[in-house]
Amino acid sequence: MSLAEAAKRGLAALAVLGLRKESADVGRGRDPTAWRCGLYADGGDVSPVAFGMGKGRPEEARVGALFEAVEHYLTGPAWFDSTAVELAGPAGLAAGPFHEDACAPLLAGMPGRRMACLRYRPLGGQGAVLVPLFLSAPWYVEAGAARLRDLTGDDCDYSHLVRYSCNSGSAVGVAASEALLHALNEVIERDALSLFLVRAFLSDGRFRPRLIDAGTLPYSTAQAYATAEDVTGSPVQLLDITSDVGVPTMMAYTPPTSRHPHRRGTGTSLSPAYAAWRALTELIQVTLGESLSQSGPRGDLAGLAAHPALHACGRFDLTGLLGEARVVAFPQTAEAGEPPEGQVRRVVTMLAARGYTGYRRTARALACGVTAVHVIVPGLERFMLVTDGNLVIPGPRGHAIASSE
């Protein structure tokens, strides 16, 4: 689907939802660049009801920002349907599909008996599962959501589980297949980043990252690379962090300095060139986005100080490790524009080959086709939350990596 048609669908979604948007180019004419988009209720409050950022070529970034804002709105509390909630005992969840999850030890020991869950369908195979809502909805575990938790009959204490809550795996698309592909790739990307952290900082020191030779980048990727160096004011390292799942995953990285934390962008796609493009443009986006941030304590690593190894993960200083990197040429592959449905099937097959099953939930499907989904793959890691300052530990998958390196 063309960007122009996608933009039309995005505007149709706003009309259905009774919202208006305010957008701006944060990169002020750069190419690639980043756009921001705030959504406001028609005739409503002056505060935005949702916010999103987009990256890439100017039009791609403008439309991407609109769609990310729509995603955040459709997966947020405004559309929460308490009647869809099913309650399950945390201990049972820890013994079921989530027995390989990093938060299983917390679930297993919880005193509550009724945890709010939503029903997910498997991507391939059979057997729906209940997934705890807190895993995908940080807003649900906050103090201000106590009324929502009462409404669902949830009696669990989330004061520790909140550390493992993030919206990763949520995505929106012009159709369900596109949303599913984005969500699956995002889950695989966060897992690959998490495993990279484990290898770099929690293993015995023999890890050698794969550093892409910048001289071998395709033209459009090289253009994004040059813009990333211009925006960050720093040499950029492009690393291949593809996990055993096998879907190409790239990370564009600059180290921490005395003035700012490390910066990174990551991308996952069956196309290595597109994965690199997403990584580099995300680095551009997060750097330009620093001027917009009102994140308060986020990224503050003080809470990790009691655990030096976790603090090292949070700081993410690869300076020493990059000196030992293996320099590799950018993977040259035939790039075919396979439709999202086919890519979803291939990615699901690659996950299954490693013993993992993805599960999906449709958060909202609008008449114009715009669809928001959440995907979870039990067993894959979300340890990358440590780089936000969250005190989390890897799950069994990360442990296995640490002990096998």
């Binding site: 293993s203 015995d204 020191g205 986005g289 986020r298 809470g303 976790l310 005190l391 990360g398």
Partner: peptide, 20 residues
């Protein structure tokens, strides 16, 4: 883009760090 481990997490982390 308020931080202490539970006993179960402490044990898992200690087990992981013992591999280093």
């Amino acid at each position: 883009f308020d931080q202490h481990l539970t006993q179960a997490e402490h044990e898992r982390l200690a087990e992981l760090l013992s591999t280093m």
